[in-house]
Write a protein that binds this DNA or RNA. Structure first.
Length: 209
DNA sequence: AAACTGGTCAACCGCGAAACA
DNA sequence: ATGTTTCGCGGTTGACCAGTT
């Protein structure tokens, strides 16, 4: 027998009976799991993720616990819109550091490497693709038929990204290909903030780190 | 209204580095 | 010095959702 576990967005996986009975769980985290991990780290602190996984009673790998904490549960994690300033900073840092997402994330307090990586891939790379194809069209229209190998790979796009960063600066005039900060809604998700009152209700013996 | 398509993002995987025995 | 374990990072996957046809 199999049950489909879903928690709003994200990966929904088939959870087998075997998994339910004690082996490693995968897929989206449930609110109960979040609460367990959150409380455990509140009491014992971060680190030693394999022990966290074992000692907390979660049927998750240490890796999975670490990722969930860093990308979602951490109290200082900021979610939602990436501001224009942050976007500019990401573009500039990427031009300088390349795909060193964790390094880039260190310059953006509260932002995770995963979030920045996703942002880059979905917004910036797509934008560059559009921009480059528009460029090609323009060149084509102008009769410039020389082959310009426009790649959208990260390495090749660094200097280009830097140019974009400049054109993206607050003072720059907006063009048809300028960025738009996307509105995001996480309606189907419980927020980390929601865990705070729950965890407070859970017992007053938890000292805050 | 249903089917299709593309964008988004949480989570997994594989690999290399660091730490430890 | 070597083997093993743990951790962290970057790449990739796949479910969900909104917009389009």
């Amino acid at each position: 027998m199999e049950t489909m576990k879903k928690t709003g967005r994200g990966k929904a996986r088939i959870t087998s009976q075997k998994e339910e009975e004690g082996t490693v769980r995968k897929g989206p985290w449930t609110m109960e799991e979040d609460l367990i991990l959150f409380n455990y780290i509140l009491n014992h602190g971060e680190g030693l993720w394999n022990s966290v996984a074992k000692a907390s009673g979660l049927k998750r790998t240490g890796k999975s616990c670490r990722l969930r904490w860093l990308n979602y549960l951490r109290p200082d994690v900021r979610r939602g819109n990436i501001s224009a300033e942050e976007q500019l900073l990401i573009i500039q840092l990427h031009a300088k550091l390349g795909n060193r997402w964790s390094k880039i994330a260190k310059h953006l307090p509260g932002r995770t490497d995963n979030e920045i990586k996703n942002f880059w891939r979905t917004k910036i790379q797509r934008h560059m693709k559009v921009a480059s194809s528009e460029n090609m069209k323009i060149r084509h229209c102008l009769g410039n038929s020389q082959s310009s190998e426009m790649t959208t790979t990260d390495q090749g796009s660094s200097s280009k990204a830097f140019d974009m960063a400049e054109s993206f600066s607050p003072g720059a005039t907006t063009t048809s290909t300028s960025f738009h900060v996307m509105e995001q809604s996480n309606d189907n998700y419980w927020n980390v903030e929601d865990l705070w009152p729950v965890q407070l209700l859970n017992g007053s013996d938890h000292q805050v780190i």
